[in-house]
C-alpha cells in the first residue's frame, strides 16, 4: 500500500468517526487492475476500501450533485481536475463550499485504462498516460481543506491547443467532413453530458420531450447535440477531459472544447475555468470594450 492510500484511509476514518462528514467519496479498486472506481464511504470501518493508484481518472465532482441537499457535509478526494470541477459547481451555485470537505491529491497523471486493458498486466509499465492528463495544466488541487503529500511539479506534456492549431489548417469542407464522420458514430448515450461537471442544469434541453432535438440518431441530430453541448459549457468547461474519456465511441470531444477555450483566450484574454470559485465568467458578464468583430 502506498503512503497516499494509507493517509487517505486515516483521514476518511477520522472524519467519519468524529462525525465531521456524513460521507467520504473516493476511489476503490474495481474489476481489473486498470479500474479504479468511485466509492462512497459512510462507516469508519469501510475507509480501508479507499485506494490511490495509477487509474483514479474518474472525476467525481459531478457525483457531488446527488448530495447537495444532505444535512451534513460530504468529504471528497480531489485531484487537480476534480478540484476545478468542484469550483465549477460552487461558482454555478449548485453546491455550497461549506457543505463539502476537500482532501487534495496532487496528481502525477493517470494511466490510460483503455490501453491498459489491451496491453494486459504484464505490460503495465508500457501503459501511457490518459489523453486528458497529457494536456493537464493544474495537476495540483486548486482548492482543498487538507492536502495529502507534497504538490507535484507542473509538467505540461502536450500543449492543449496543439491539436487545434493543426486542425485550424484544414479547409471548411475538411472540417465539416471530419465532424460528420465523428458524430455519425455517436449513439446519444449522453455519457459526455452526464459525466461533465459543467453540465449541471436542473433540467437539460435534451431531455425535454424532443421539443428541441428529436431522438432519432442521425447526422444532423448528433451534430446538433455535440455543438449545443460544446457551446453551453463554453467558458465554463474546466477541460478535465472526462467527456472524451467517458465516450464509448471514442469521439474526440475535447477538440471542440479546446477550440472554444482557445477562441475565448484570444477574444477575452487568458482564462482557465474552475481555478477560482469566485469571479466573473468570460461569457457570463458584459464589458463595454468587449470585442464585437461579428457586428
Amino acid at each position: 500500500m502506498n503512503q497516499q492510500t494509507a493517509r487517505m484511509r486515516e483521514i476518511a476514518r477520522e472524519l467519519l468517526e468524529k462525525k465531521e462528514v456524513e460521507m467520504v467519496i473516493g476511489w476503490e479498486k474495481g474489476t481489473f487492475f486498470y479500474n479504479s472506481t468511485p466509492v462512497f464511504i459512510t462507516k469508519p470501518e469501510d475507509a480501508d476500501k479507499l485506494i490511490w493508484d495509477d487509474y483514479c481518472a474518474v472525476n467525481f465532482a459531478k457525483l457531488l450533485m446527488d448530495y447537495r441537499y444532505l444535512d451534513g457535509k460530504v468529504a471528497v478526494f480531489v485531484k487537480g481536475c476534480d478540484a476545478r470541477g468542484v469550483n465549477r459547481l460552487i461558482q454555478d451555485l449548485v453546491i455550497k463550499r461549506e457543505k463539502i470537505y476537500l482532501i487534495g491529491m496532487p496528481c502525477p497523471g493517470m494511466k490510460d485504462a483503455k490501453i491498459a486493458a489491451k496491453l494486459g498486466q504484464e505490460k503495465e509499465a508500457e501503459v501511457p498516460l490518459e489523453g486528458k492528463c497529457l494536456y493537464c495544466t493544474h495537476p495540483n488541487p486548486v482548492i482543498y481543506d487538507v492536502l495529502i503529500g507534497d504538490e507535484v511539479p507542473v509538467e505540461i506534456r502536450e500543449d492543449r491547443f496543439a491539436r487545434i492549431k493543426e486542425f485550424e489548417e484544414k479547409s471548411s469542407d475538411e472540417k465539416a467532413q471530419f465532424w460528420a464522420s465523428q458524430y455519425d458514430r455517436c449513439i446519444r448515450c449522453y455519457a459526455c453530458r452526464n459525466v461533465c461537471p459543467a453540465c449541471n442544469c436542473r433540467s437539460c434541453v435534451f431531455d425535454q420531450n424532443q421539443d428541441w432535438l428529436e431522438r432519432a440518431v442521425d447526422r444532423s441530430g448528433n451534430q446538433f447535440y455535440g455543438l449545443v453541448r460544446a457551446f453551453h459549457v463554453a467558458g465554463r468547461c474546466i477541460e478535465c477531459g472526462e467527456c472524451e474519456r467517458a465516450c464509448p465511441m471514442g469521439i474526440p470531444i475535447m477538440l471542440l472544447k479546446h477550440k472554444i477555450s482557445k477562441d475565448i483566450n484570444e477574444l477575452f484574454g487568458e482564462y482557465e475555468a474552475g481555478l477560482d470559485p469566485e469571479g466573473d465568467l468570460p461569457l457570463g458578464m458584459y464589458k463595454a470594450d468587449d470585442p464585437d468583430e461579428f457586428m
Binding site: P38, F40, I187, R188, C189, Y190, A191, N194, A246
Partner: peptide, 15 residues
C-alpha cells in the same frame, strides 16, 4: 449502494 456511482448515461443499455 450499487447505484451511487452510476452517472445515468445510456451507454450500458445502448450497447
Amino acid at each position: 449502494e450499487i447505484s451511487r456511482k452510476c452517472i445515468n448515461c445510456g451507454t450500458c443499455t445502448y450497447l
